[in-house]
């Protein structure tokens, strides 16, 4: 007996000119093939991220003080987009796959995911988190509380801050004044951070 728990399917960073700064896609567990494959192709994820911009715009008129936009829209019964906006207009989007990971009902994380196989240090903690996640999922049924995503956005924001501290990263190049275009983030360190965040998160994780 195994249960499916949510995982991150895609992390996106959108610049203040509505330009894509960064997109990371994470494969989800596919029980029919017993393998990890992304649930959408890169173009579809890109479009999903674009569609969140409208929601950001609508909601920013009565924006929350914290910048946390919570659930932006539920795309289908599997995917849901959550958002966060900084005061400088950089938006971070996390698309969650509600059935992205599988855990054995017995408590041991069976087909846990890439994070559990790759990082041995986090395996015990993520197994515990997975157990906690299943407990919370069964009590509230499907759906995630907005607070569950807060660690993701906090980690993404601090990764972005670290990126900005790099003197060779020129923010103007990535979102020029004038409101048009901008180059993508090419930093390897930032990419690695996003990978770590996307693979490390499951509901119940409090720090990434």
């Amino acid at each position: 007996m195994s249960a499916a728990i949510p995982s991150v399917a895609c992390l996106g960073v959108i610049g203040r000119n509505n330009n894509p700064l960064h997109i990371s896609i994470f494969p989800s567990y596919d029980p029919t093939a017993n393998a990890f494959t992304p649930v959408r192709n890169p173009l579809q994820f890109s479009l999903l991220l674009s569609s969140t911009i409208d929601v950001f715009d609508l909601r920013s008129k009565n924006s929350t003080a914290s910048g946390d936009f919570g659930l932006l829209h539920a795309i289908d019964d599997r995917l849901a987009a959550y958002g966060f906006e900084t005061n400088t207009g950089v938006r971070m989007v996390c698309i969650v796959d509600m059935r992205g990971r599988r855990v054995e009902a017995g408590g041991s994380a069976g087909a846990g995911g890439p994070s559990q196989s790759s990082t041995s240090t986090s395996s015990s903690s993520s197994a515990a988190a997975a157990a906690a996640a299943r407990a919370s999922m069964s009590s509230v049924g499907a759906g995630l509380r907005d607070a569950e995503l807060r660690p993701v956005f906090r980690a993404m924001q601090s990764a972005y801050v670290r990126l900005l501290q790099n003197p060779f990263y020129d923010p103007d190049e990535h979102a020029p004044l004038g409101g048009k275009g901008g180059r993508r983030i090419t930093s390897k360190k930032f990419g690695d951070d996003m990978k770590r965040i996307g693979e490390g998160w499951t509901p119940g994780v409090t720090a990434l």
Binding site: Q165, N166, P167, F168, Y169, T186, S187, K188, K189
Partner: peptide, 8 residues
Amino acid sequence: ADFVELPD
């Protein structure tokens, strides 16, 4: 050198 990543 904190935070620094050399140009790629």
